[in-house]
Amino acid sequence: MPQIFDRSSNALARMSLILTGLIVIALGLTLDELQRSPWVTRQGQRADQPVPFSHKHHVEGLGLQCQYCHTTVEKSNYAGIPPTKTCMNCHAQIWTDAQLLEPVRQSWATGESITWTRVHDLPDYVFFNHEIHVNKGIGCSSCHGRVDEMPIMYMQNTLQMEWCLNCHRNPAKNLRPTSEIYNMAWQGASELTPVWCAAEDVPKGSPTAGGVTCTETAPGGEVQMAALSPPVPGLHAQSVGVQIGSEDTGVMQLPAGLHYTKFTSQEALGKFLIQHYDIRNPRELTSCEVCHR
């Protein structure tokens, strides 16, 4: 009886076994890369917007602050996309006949919303809160990148859970003083850009970031760094009738002698801020219910 298989089949069989192994490995690596690729995450993709709004022009060029449009970023989950009214604050007079702005005027005239394409679209099962991040030392650029240099908005980061957790497990590397939140160019503390911070006790119930004072310039002995008086109860009190100028030294307390510490590394600054911003430890920060409720 003849052989069923040719001599070459031995080599072929071995090769195909090895090849199968290689294919499986290659497939695994490919999938690993693929799931993080912009094809899946849409990272870096510039969506088609009804109006090609340029953050670069408005922020870098004109010097508008983030909050001018995103008014609720410090007090709500959502930073807020400005209503047409905000556009019209200026564009009622400037560039009134620009073709680009036609949808804006259209919206203003009809009351119809402009339908923007959301760029930073988290899945609906993620509960992200801008307020807590902004008020506890995470700057805009930490997540959104250099928006002031983006002619058309795109996603700087993947916004994948992996990316969230990388920070939540070690917030120190991204924390900055709350005075630098809207500073797009903040680089973190280093030898070249040291940061001086001082902390004082704040009463319970006041914002946790309130007791920390930071500066990027060396505070000299006599440099007046205004210290806050304890918050006045009843800010909403009915007309108390205190006239400006009639300074009451009882209210305007003398600044306490602040003790500044110099930070020349982001790690050290981050640790200091974690402590004084009352940031939860990584194990609590990565608890599932922090983001999935």
Binding site: M1, Q3, S9, N10, A13, L17
Partner: peptide, 12 residues
């Protein structure tokens, strides 16, 4: 194994 071709299979 696998050794699909082997001389012993040549034996009739």
């Amino acid at each position: 194994l696998p050794k699909l071709y082997h001389p012993v299979f040549n034996a009739p």
